[in-house]
Design a protein around this nucleic acid. Structure first.
Length: 804
DNA sequence: AGCACGCCGACT
DNA sequence: GTCGGCGTGCTC
């Protein structure tokens, strides 16, 4: 077994296979499947993952692994196989799958540089290089390129005076901190302590401290707690009594927070009924998928917590997925309060280093529970007892780049391997999941009532067209405005929700209707206030904000579609005494500001919380008795077959923020389309009827859950090329599928051009097409050369969530 | 993905 | 005759 087959870090069709390398004798014990290694690949050095060990290779002239990057494999056998499964299910490269399963910190960084060759003097080089190498022992390749030195250096390299060096580096280092500990045994320590002169009080207290706690302590901690100077420690080190060493520490994003330890709450009868099948699956080590369908405020979290408790009792581990967790600090708190240090948290708000450290806690089995966003599904546990996906309908569980996986599918796959239950929780389940529950592929568990029998909030739908007709041109209906004022008087809190389309505002000319578009993409530019620039969200193009219209020279060019800020201004004009907290991308940009704003609101420092999507979830404050949705229908008009579903879900979620505790809640939904069933049924909070209605439509239009979807997107700089390739692809796919499948296209993508590349797509709707995956693979193979050069791009998304 | 090798046009 | 364009194919 002295040969390793390695998946190399080159995401391309031709390299999507293993390469064999000899294992040097000295690394024989370290290199195992799942270890990251540095290998020579052509002229360069790159990172790779050991996939297997073997005794012989069909290849005769093997090169040797340069060095391992890990002492313990970063992927265990289960995760390696999961990676292969991912590759197969998303038609992506193996290397991309492996990398997706690990924190970004473990992805290699490459550096190419020029150094002086051995035995060469700087003065041997030609003129201008001498200067450069005097200043720096080496030149980075990029610098050589920008300074136009490439040719010259290549010549020098050819005559052997300089060498090109390739380096592989880790992205993030382990954090090391100075730790102090005794260098001698306790008896000697005591002796030294007693011999110290009385004026050496600092040294005395240090030694007293170590007599009590002999373990290594962070230097800065001991300095601050004992109130001594570094000198005291230094002199003890010099005498050989203490020693200082650099020890690895975890970056702990929650180190400054204290979590009060809390214990299980009593369950209601309904909760008891819902949890018992889960507990029994845990008990019997059975794989089963549960759909926990519970209205907002029905106590789903407590069910998660108690199920996990049972899993921990059995000595197993738990994964909890929540949508973009930085948005729900309340959730983290509840888990930390219940399980303390056994919880790792993984979300996008953490730095790369923090994520890496949380990951290592999992890998080393120092924690038993991980709470995190999508990628936490790959937590390297080895004895999983339950996987929970909260807000299961959230589309953020689908990754929109390769590998395009859905966390729910990965969860079920892993749960099968570990023979453990999966719990999908939601107040508004996705149609896919609810349909599966109806077909009894999932076990349905319902919590139809709120805790403590608290009533669901009463919802009123206000027709904004009517308001306009009666002369109210503001963005608040009379009803909503009256209620806001009423809450202010009663000292109760209001949440105002603005369902903005897209991110932020765009610029439009009031005279001629000119809208600023990206010159490279068919998309409007968005206005960014922080740098007063117009920016394209697809290609990064930036432009200044125009003061006069480029089309008609009018000065009436204004920001439109503006959100929270405008609402805030208007509200303050109407009710100057209102204290408002605004939450949007602008006010929550900085790390931790999200949490600060929420805490301020919770402590009653404001009457009104005004925000976008980010306030729809997880808010659970007792004093909120009014929720206002300013315009319910902005999302309805999107070209997406899920827009009704999304609207219903969002409205129901937001409404659920009101009246969760003792005080009853009220909701006002303002809309221009009150007759639309998703608005109307969100008003009566009738999921079941919404489900029936939407299923009818999905059936007629042949959409999920009745049909599966796959989307092929083709892009190229030339329109003709895109159209012809997409046409060929569509034809080819049709020819390989049964008559039951529907192939739509080629049609222009909803965003027809991004970054000067035209985009066409082809949508496949099907029920059962075992040949489809092979057909798609054939296409990717067939266009291999062309896609390799980047001129033509073909992306395949099995079960897309965004059809763009 | 890089990088080398290799085969054609425009320059000293 | 040579420099350099980027098409083609390989990397254990």
């Amino acid at each position: 077994m002295n040969i390793a087959s390695v998946i190399v870090d080159v995401p391309a069709k031709q390299t999507d296979k293993t390469f064999d390398y000899k294992i040097p004798e000295k690394y024989k014990d370290v290199i195992k499947p799942g270890t990251r290694v540095i290998v020579p690949f052509g002229p360069r050095k790159i990172q790779g993952f050991v996939r297997d060990l073997k005794g012989e290779s069909s290849f005769s002239k093997l090169r040797a692994i340069i060095e391992p990057l890990d002492l313990t494999p970063v992927l265990n056998e289960e995760l390696l196989q999961l990676g292969d499964w991912l590759t197969e299910h998303t038609l992506s490269y193996k290397i991309s799958s492996y990398q997706a399963m690990l924190p970004a910190a473990l992805k290699a960084k490459y550096e190419k540089k020029i150094v002086l060759a051995k035995g060469t003097e700087i003065t041997d080089l030609s003129g201008n290089l001498i200067e450069l190498f005097r200043e720096n022992r080496e030149i980075k390749w990029e610098d050589a390129v920008t300074k136009g030195l490439v040719q010259q250096l290549q010549k020098e390299a050819a005559s052997g005076r300089v060498d090109v060096v390739y380096q592989v580096k880790d992205r993030v280092r382990k954090k090391l901190l100075k730790h102090v500990s005794p260098a001698i045994d306790p008896d000697q320590l005591k002796e030294t302590r007693d011999k110290l002169p009385p004026q050496a009080s600092g040294q005395q207290s240090v030694l007293d401290f170590f007599l009590e706690h002999p373990d290594p302590v962070e230097q800065r901690l001991i300095l601050s707690t004992l109130g001594i100077s570094q000198g005291s420690i230094q002199s003890l080190v010099k005498k050989g009594i203490l020693k200082i060493e650099e020890l690895e520490v975890y970056r702990d994003p929650y180190s400054e927070r204290e979590f009060e330890r809390k214990f299980a709450l009593d369950l209601t009868n309904e909760q008891e009924k819902a949890i018992s099948p889960i507990l029994s699956a845990i008990e019997k080590d059975l794989h089963e998928v549960f759909l926990l369908y519970g209205v907002t405020g029905s106590g789903k979290t407590e069910i998660y917590l108690q199920s996990i408790q049972e899993v921990l009792r059995k000595g197993k581990e738990a994964i909890v997925l929540v949508p973009e967790i930085s948005l729900t600090p309340q959730m983290v708190t509840r888990f930390k309060e219940r399980f303390g240090d056994l919880v790792a948290v993984m979300h996008s708000g953490l730095s790369a280093g923090e994520k890496y450290d949380e990951w290592r806690k999992i890998q080393r089995k120092e924690v038993k529970v991980v709470v995190g966003a999508r990628s936490a599904i790959f937590a390297p546990f080895e004895n999983i007892g339950i996987i929970i996906i909260d807000e299961e309908h959230e589309t953020s569980y689908k990754q929109e780049e390769n590998p395009r996986y859905h966390a729910r599918d990965v969860a079920i796959q892993r749960a099968k391997t570990y023979a453990c239950p999966v719990v999908l929780g939601s107040a508004t389940p996705s149609l896919e999941s609810f349909a599966r529950a109806q077909k009894e592929r999932y076990t349905l568990l319902s919590l139809p009532k709120r805790m403590n029998n608290q009533a669901l909030p009463t919802v009123e739908i206000v027709d904004m067209r009517e308001e306009l007709r009666t002369g109210n041109r503001s963005m608040f209906s009379v009803k909503l405005f009256e209620k806001i004022k009423d809450r202010l008087e009663k000292k109760e809190q209001t949440v105002l929700f603005l369902n903005k389309r897209g991110h932020s505002s765009f610029v439009m000319c009031r005279d001629c209707g000119y809208v600023m578009n990206c010159p490279h993409c068919d998309i409007t530019l968005t206005y960014h206030r922080y740098n007063e620039q117009m920016k394209c969200h697809y290609c990064g193009y930036e432009d200044r904000v125009p003061t006069i219209c480029p089309e008609c020279n009018s000065e009436h060019i204004r920001y439109f579609g503006t959100g929270t800020q405008k609402v805030e201004e208007e509200l303050l004009k109407l009710i100057p005494e209102a204290r408002i907290i605004r939450m949007d991308v602008d006010t929550t940009g900085r790390k931790g500001s999200h949490e600060k704003l929420l805490t301020a609101f919770q402590e009653g420092q404001a009457d009104i919380l005004l925000g976008t999507q980010m306030i729809a979830k997880g808010l659970d404050f007792p004093n909120i008795t009014l929720v206002g949705v300013l315009s319910a229908d902005t999302m309805l008009n999107l070209p997406d077959f899920r827009s009704s579903e999304k609207t219903f879900q969002l409205l129901t979620q937001v409404s659920g923020r009101a009246g969760r505790h003792k005080l009853p809640g009220e909701v006002v939904i303002q809309t221009y389309t009150p007759e639309h069933y998703s608005v109307e049924l969100a008003g009566t909070q009738d999921y079941d009827r919404f489900y029936q209605q939407e299923m009818l439509i999905r059936k007629v239009h042949q959409y999920p859950p009745f049909y599966y979807l796959s989307l092929v997107t083709v892009s190229h700089e030339e329109l003709m090329k895109v159209v012809s390739v997409t046409e060929k692809i569509a034809k080819f796919i049709s020819s390989r599928l049964t008559n039951e499948a529907v192939v739509l296209g080629p049609v222009a993508s909803p965003i027809p051009r991004i970054n000067d590349r035209y985009r066409y797509q082809c949508l496949i709707k099907y029920k059962k097409e075992p040949e489809l995956k092979n057909a798609l693979k054939t296409i990717l193979d067939h266009y291999q050369q062309e896609t390799g050069t980047g001129a033509l791009q073909i992306s395949v998304d099995l079960n897309p969530y965004i059809l763009m």
